[in-house]
């Protein structure tokens, strides 16, 4: 069972919901929390412990200058501008390389081989006996966001209850995270922005035909457009979180509210069970 926690953009409280939900459900289930927001992974900030590390790489070309005849074939092939053949050398921009392997195939002299370049890391830890955290982190300056997400996904077991903290937006990274999920919990705010972003992420879930529900954060703002949208599209609103300085403070200092406050723990357990019920599982 895979449940994605997503939002049209960051900062809507998506990570807060993911972390609290994972902690609350871990009292009754074997839970894996997968941080797929690899450009800004934040889940790990809420748990301590020494994780195992796995380096994620993607192949980039390496050119044997003795074998290269500067024929230019690789440079005119590469659609990403990652190779340019000058009169005296081949210029490489590994940060533009999409690792398609084309240059290696087209080089007539066999001068190109592929070497691994670091795209990111996956951290694996077990903050609690019934809670595993798999967290992906994109290497700064790398463009291989989906490579790192795929690496995180490889660690997820179908039979476990998996919560995925999805990257914001409707980009390819969000798609990569959402595509095999059974359910998506969309976190938004009752503002014109929140509504706009909610419609975007809702469109993605419709492409994949994933059942969804909504959590409204900062629910005390006087704007009911989001509620109207949810009613119109038959989206159940499962939780409303009012703005609260205590929550904000806790969040800011890396504490988990449902770990501290029994009322909130109860609310998140209920949220989790509702999600599971909506997916048809128990």
């Amino acid at each position: 069972m895979q449940i994605a926690i997503a939002s049209g953009k960051g900062g809507t409280g998506k990570t807060t919901v993911a972390v609290n939900l994972a902690l609350a459900l871990s009292t009754s289930h074997e839970v894996t929390l997968a941080d797929c927001d690899v450009e800004e992974p934040n889940c790990h900030l809420f748990f301590s412990g020494h994780p195992d590390e796995e380096i994620v790489t993607n192949p980039v070309p390496e050119i044997d200058t003795d074998a290269c005849t500067l024929c230019g074939t690789c440079g005119s092939f590469c659609r990403y501008g990652a190779l340019i053949v000058l009169t005296d050398r081949v210029l490489q921009y590994p940060q533009l390389c999409h690792s398609c392997g084309g240059c290696e195939i087209v080089c007539p002299t066999g001068a190109i081989s592929m070497r691994p370049e670091k795209a990111g890391v996956v951290h694996i830890s077990k903050p609690k006996p019934s809670l595993s955290l798999i967290s992906g982190t994109l290497e700064e300056g790398s463009i291989h966001t989906t490579t790192v997400i795929k690496a995180v996904r490889r660690h997820l077991l179908r039979e476990n209850l998996v919560l995925l903290d999805a990257p914001p937006g409707s980009s390819c990274a969000a798609m990569e995270t959402l595509k095999d999920c059974d359910f998506c919990l969309m976190v938004t705010e009752p503002t014109p922005f929140g509504l706009h972003d909610l419609t975007l992420i809702h469109e993605v879930t419709e492409i994949f035909n994933i059942p969804t529900a909504v959590v409204i954060n900062r629910s005390d703002e006087k704007n009911n457009d989001v509620d109207m949208y949810c009613t119109a599209h038959n989206l159940p609103v499962l939780m409303r979180i009012p703005f609260d300085r205590t929550i904000a403070l806790m969040q800011g200092s890396g504490e988990i509210i449902s770990g501290q406050d029994p009322v909130w723990r109860e609310r998140f357990v209920r949220l989790g069970l509702q999600c599971l019920a909506l997916t048809g599982a128990r």
């Binding site: 230019g72 005119s76 501008g81 340019i84 009169t87």
Partner: peptide, 20 residues
């Protein structure tokens, strides 16, 4: 320009053509 209708990496590839 062989890359005129393509969408990716056209600038750098055209530069390579100029060099050649």
């Amino acid at each position: 320009n062989p890359y005129a209708a393509e969408s990716g990496g056209v600038g750098p590839r055209l530069v390579q053509l100029l060099v050649q």
